[in-house]
Design a protein around this nucleic acid. Sequence first.
DNA 1: TTTATTTGACCGGT
DNA 2: ACCGGTCAAATAAA
Length: 361
Amino acid sequence: MESEWSWEQNTLINELIQGMELARKLKEDLRMPYSVDSRDMLVQRIVSSYEKALLILRCNAPISELQATSQATATLLPESPISVHGSPLSEDVDGAIKDHKEIQHDAKKRKITPKWMDHVRVSCDSGLEGPQEDGYNWRKYGQKDILGAKYPRSYYRCTFRNTQGCWATKQVQRSDEDPTIFDITYRGKHTCSQGNNTVLPPKSPDKQEKTHIHNIDIHHAQASQESLPKFRNIMSVNTEKLDNGDTAYPFTFPSTSSGCMKQYNHSFIPLTLENEYFLSDQYQTYLLSPTTPESNYLPSPTFQINEFDGIYNKRYSESDINEIISTNTSATNSPIPDFNFSLDPAEIDPNFPFNTPGFFS
DNA sequence: TTTATTTGACCGGT
DNA sequence: ACCGGTCAAATAAA
């Protein structure tokens, strides 16, 4: 928790500094006669930076505060999950209820209590394979045709399930109505190092390259206003209040920080900061600004809940053993967040109490 | 050779 | 019996 907090502090400072630098760039840019697009992009990035910073602050706010906020604005479902989603489909609501029941049922059976669940809606146009990049390493373990659904549902589990006992899973299903939209259901919280440190373990250079190109493409498309890969991230979050009174606070950045978000006014009210935009303008399209590549690796700052005390007592397959051995070597690398920012004292108002006690309280 | 994906089989719940 | 979720052998990709 200590290192996590530190990470959040760093990220917060990073975002604030980034916002400040971008604002300065914008200021310079305004003196030039060119590139309105560039200005738009800068503004978007500034907004995004402050948005994330505020999100971090918010998620570290006292629980009661968060609760009050969410309950004041959200339409509550029966059984109390504060369900929020941007989907116009009532199916999501049903799914949330159903999953909630499943969780309760599972809790009886296996003594494993997934604490929270997100429903994230991501869409992208062609050219991108789908919402696979959400900052975590997933391993596909199944695919199933679902009754009444055009497209099959894919099942993923955390790559580190066996090595670190991380039981996070997700399901990805392409929307019937809009095939460019993927409904992603997250189950369980990451207890692996990528969840704890909220950074990805080092990827292979190859993968890093791919990701980087991916981001560049998005930036370029936005900057040039051509063939914009419209990342419409309609986030929805489902917070469940559990029997023991614990409340887990979902928090997730969009799988990409570039794109366009839309929220419908009849939907539930998410807890996430993005949705404050939706509240202020209930049918607003919000363009997420492109940010630095590393910001794409901002997974959920984890409110660590180690409820997954179930023991993976199934037999290991040969590939699993291989996975354990091979992944352990990389896991010991202790990935260190690469924030790629520097604190230039000259750039910061020395009177600004970044490090005063209580600033991060 | 290692790692990830595919896909039919299997399982438990309804 | 049906359905959704998971397993694991086979296969593909790196």
